[in-house]
Every structure is written in structure tokens, then in C-alpha cells.
Simulated assay, not measured.
Amino acid sequence: MSEKMEKLRSYLKVHAEFCTTANSRFDAQYKCNESLILAYGIPFEKRVDPAPIPGEPKSCYKNCYEGLLLHSNWHYCEGFATHENLPLALIHAWLVNDRGEVIDPTWTNRGGTAYFGVVFERKFVGERVEAARQYAILDSDYKFDFPLLKYGFADGMLNPKFHSRSREGRRHE
């Protein structure tokens, strides 16, 4: 695992530990998105550059949802990412192809990127975007009384091509 990925995961672990303490009264298995993503997420370090589709700056969820609709062999991801000019991890959306290579229409011309997150099933993405009336999945969890943080990802939410049942819910140490 690369140094940039180790730094990203370390950042997520520190923030997750803080959330566990700060949100101790929140009756949920995962106290924040960082904890949820550490439990279910996978690393993505290979990236297609330049991205084959342009996106609007600061519109990662919209850019990726629209890219998903245009390309049947791309998969929608959310989690946390960073790049060499960013001293912290941001919640972010990106796409991956069937080889697991990142396609990021939002962060163009960014070197030293690292992504850690989950790959969603296409059907779940469409249903959730329609129900929430917003593009983000993790950031719309509050609209449904936090089922993702309370219980984790249910069957049919994560893409089995990238997430085997044996890995789900396992903390990455």
C-alpha cells in the first residue's frame, strides 16, 4: 500500500476515533461516515488520466451520477479522497471502470491522489438519488434516519464485483 493511501487511512482512523467519543450517545453501529467507510471501504490508487469526461468543479456527486448514466461499464463510488495539494481527506464521489481504475471527472490535473471508499450497485444509486432528491448517498443518510450509520450496508447496496460478502463490515486495520 502506498504512503499516500496509508496517510489517508490514518486520517480516517483518527477522525473515526474522535467521532466515537464525540457521538457516544448516537445509537448507531458507525458514529460517522469515516467509521462506516473504514469498515466497508477498499483502496483505489490507479487512476485514468485524463478523465474521459469533464466535470464541473465542486460537483463530484452530480458529475459522477451523470457519468454513470452515460457509461454502463462504469461504477459509482463514494468515500474519502485526497491529493498531494490537500492536507486532509474530503468526502468525495468518483467512478471506477471494471478494472477498478478511478475515473474522476471533478478532480482534474491532481497528482498524488488516493481514494478509499465503496462501490455501489447501479440500481441502488438510482433509487437513492430519486428518493433523497440529491446526488450524494452518504451525505443524504440523514434524510432516512441514518440507516447506513445505524446498520451498515444492506444486501443490494454494494457492488459484489468489488465487495465480497466476507469483507463487508470488517474493520480495516
Score class of each variant (00 low, 15 high):
R170C: 13
N159W: 09
Y115S: 03
I37C: 06
W74T: 01
D145V: 10
K46D: 15
V125E: 00
C77Q: 05
Y30F: 12
F146W: 15
H71D: 14
P50L: 13
L90I: 06
V96G: 04
E84W: 03
D141L: 03
G169D: 07
N159H: 13
V119S: 00
E168M: 13
I103Y: 04
G169P: 12
F146A: 11
V102M: 08
G156E: 07
A51G: 10
N109E: 10
E78F: 04
Y142A: 11
V102E: 14
V96E: 03
E127F: 10
E168V: 15
S2R: 07
A22G: 02
N159P: 05
D27L: 15
T106K: 02
K62Y: 10
A39Q: 03
G117L: 05
K46Y: 13
L149H: 11
R25H: 09
M1R: 09
I91M: 11
E78W: 02
I137H: 05
L38Y: 09
D155C: 09
L70F: 05
R170E: 14
R99H: 15
F120L: 02
R133V: 07
N63K: 05
L12V: 12
V125R: 00
S164P: 00
W94K: 03
K46Q: 14
L149I: 11
D155L: 09
G111L: 09
G55C: 01
E6C: 05
K31I: 09
E168C: 12
N85H: 02
R9Y: 08
Y135K: 05
G41S: 03
K46E: 15
L70Y: 07
G67F: 00
Y40P: 07
R99V: 12
A131R: 11
C64Q: 02
H163F: 07
T21M: 04
D49F: 13
Y65N: 06
K150M: 08
A131H: 07
E78Y: 01
N73A: 06
K150N: 09
R165L: 15
F18T: 11
L12E: 12
P52H: 01
G117I: 03
I53L: 14
I53S: 15
P54V: 00
C19K: 10
H83T: 02
V96A: 05
P43R: 13
Y135I: 01
L68D: 03
K31R: 14
A81W: 01
T20G: 11
P147W: 00
N63T: 01
P43N: 15
K62N: 10
A89E: 00
I37H: 06
L68W: 00
K143C: 04
K62M: 09
K161F: 11
E101M: 12
K58S: 09
